[in-house]
């Protein structure tokens, strides 16, 4: 019996030829294709730029789609990015991956451009009030601190600046999400599983 099994094993693997999918279209957004290699590249870029990794393929794909939609729709407000700004941002990151530097620079430029666009489009009109800060402190910050088991919860005055930033960011994210949702509704998105 054992020789037979051995023979079967030799025949089945490792010399059997298997086709491997090395790249494919994973989604089409308004006629623009997103491939598996694009996704791999995005994952590496996120790693290089210190972003929190997204393990779930579907979630990563949504990020890539969002990035494309944002890039193609942020045309109504000028948000130029200089090489100097890109260089300054690049210095924050380590040597990173095997990706060509041009691709990393391109990704960084896009991120700076997005940030500038969001600030100009909505950020300049978001001004958290003291009441907003106080409400955030009481409803979000304090419960979170308690949940983390902090012995001494910092006072509002001591954390006002960071709370203000959080309130600002939440308001900004809210505007961005509404805008993005409207763009998604009018876009043709096809995902291939």
């Amino acid at each position: 019996m054992k020789p037979v099994l051995l023979l079967l094993y030799c025949l089945s693997s490792p010399f059997a030829i298997r086709a491997e999918v090395i790249d494919r279209i994973v989604a089409v957004v308004d006629g623009h294709i997103i491939t598996a290699s694009d996704m791999r590249q995005q994952r590496e870029i996120r790693g290089t730029l210190g972003d929190k990794p997204i393990e779930d393929e579907a979630a990563l794909l949504q990020h890539v789609i969002d990035d494309y939609l944002i890039e193609t729709n942020m045309t109504d407000v000028t948000a130029d990015v200089t090489d100097g700004e890109v260089d300054a941002e690049m210095r924050k990151f380590g040597p990173g991956s095997d990706l060509p530097p041009a691709k990393v620079r391109e990704a960084v430029r896009l991120r700076i451009r997005m940030r500038k666009y969001f600030d100009k489009r909505w950020g300049e009109s978001i001004h958290p009030t003291d009441e907003d800060i106080r409400r955030y402190y009481e409803n979000v910050f304090v419960p979170a601190a308690k949940e983390r088991g902090l012995a001494a919860i910092p006072t509002l005055e001591s954390v006002a600046d960071s709370v203000r930033n959080n309130v600002f960011q939440e308001a900004l994210n809210h505007e961005i999400n509404i805008w993005l949702e409207a763009i998604r509704r009018k876009s043709k998105i096809e995902i291939f599983k």
């Binding site: 086709a19 491997e20 999918v21 090395i22 790249d23 494919r24 279209i25 089409v28 096809e190």
Partner: peptide, 10 residues
């Protein structure tokens, strides 16, 4: 074409 994938074999 609506979909393209690339298969490789040695």
């Amino acid at each position: 074409y609506s979909y393209v994938e690339v298969d490789a074999t040695p």
